[in-house]
């Protein structure tokens, strides 16, 4: 039991710091954003599982030779109102921390979800009053604003893509088509769910390097995944031009005097957490081949193993 607790704690530590730091610096992720995304999810899940698992196993150690037996004994103690004499202060402390951490994670996940849903509903209400459907494009709304802006608003069957007048003016038809394909890819691949989960993870444990790095990496990876969908039917050069025009256009817009055209936008990155445009462009300008089949299989196997290790450590001794 103690050995299991130490192994889980070690895994939690490794997944909290060195592994995410190395992965966020790795260059192969731009070549296979999908595999990288799977790996990040596995790191987050395995990290949380081993963190909570380590404290649970340590706390229950005096009650049984394995987790399942100890849990059965703990249930008898709680239900039978017996005195948990075998448990000392540090055991109880670990158990309480594990319980609090679990509640905290679940609660933050739900709270973040509620906040996002509220804000999205409000956004949709305003949008309905301020934009009009695009004549040519299905489920696409056009809003009257001079800055070139494109984004998608997820909401099941009511998902829409929003484009600004400024964007329609700045881009040629094929560039515009690339932007719309990019936004639709976000919606069809349900990227908002990933962004939500990793935003909640960061909000719950902001002091943990892994949660901050993971969110930044996931933000960047979903853009690359959407770019890759647009690239299937658009030459890279067209997409590059669209990205550059939109980025420069929104920066120029911020330099105009405020109020000159109904609300200008600050163009500076406020906290460096935004998606790295340079990384996105460089993989389009100097494309490198995607990871080979063996390498991709290796990354996916590693992801599966990462999840399997804490699960086996927790459950196997009890089942065997």
């Amino acid at each position: 039991m103690l050995l299991t607790a130490y192994l889980l704690a070690l895994l939690a530590l490794v997944l909290a710091w060195p592994v995410p730091v190395a992965l966020s610096r790795a260059r192969w992720t731009a070549r296979s954003p999908f595999a990288a995304m799977v790996l990040w999810q596995s790191i987050a899940l395995a990290g949380g599982l081993s963190m909570i698992g380590a404290m649970l196993v340590y706390g229950l150690e005096p009650l049984g030779g394995n987790l399942l037996a100890a849990l059965r004994r703990a249930t008898t103690i709680v239900l039978g109102n017996e005195s948990p004499g075998e448990l000392h202060f540090w055991h109880l402390f670990a158990l309480c921390t594990a319980a609090l951490l679990t509640v905290h994670l679940v609660f933050t996940l739900l709270l973040t979800y509620a906040r996002i849903v509220t804000q999205r509903r409000r956004h949709r209400e305003l949008l309905a009053l301020l934009s009009s459907p695009s004549g040519a494009l299905d489920r696409t709304w056009v809003i009257n604003h001079p800055a070139p802006v494109a984004y998608c608003l997820p909401g099941g069957s009511r998902s829409v893509t929003v484009l600004s007048d400024g964007l329609m003016e700045a881009l040629a038809p094929e560039e515009l088509a690339a932007v719309v394909r990019h936004e639709r890819a976000h919606l069809t691949q349900r990227h908002h769910l990933l962004l939500w989960a990793f935003e909640a993870w960061r909000a719950a444990l902001p002091w943990l390097p892994t949660s901050r790095l993971a969110r930044a990496a996931v933000n960047s990876l979903v853009e690359m995944l959407a770019d890759d969908v647009a690239r299937r039917s658009t030459p890279d050069a067209v997409l590059v031009r669209a990205i550059a025009l939109v980025a420069v256009g929104s920066a120029d817009d911020g330099e105009r005097p405020p109020g000159a055209h109904g609300g200008s936008l600050p163009a500076t990155m406020d906290n460096g957490e935004d998606v790295d445009v340079a990384a996105r462009l460089s993989r389009l300008l100097t494309p490198r081949p995607p990871l080979g089949r063996t390498a991709t299989a290796g990354v996916l196997t590693a992801s599966a193993l990462l999840l399997a290790v804490p699960t086996v450590l927790l459950l196997a001794p009890g089942i065997a």
Partner: peptide, 29 residues
Amino acid sequence: HTATLMHEALGTAPDREAVLARFIGAVSD
């Protein structure tokens, strides 16, 4: 109201949690 929507869309709003995937966020100078 339009400016509010655009700030949310570009992630420059004070409350940054709308998490609307956008084509390009704000870029540095």
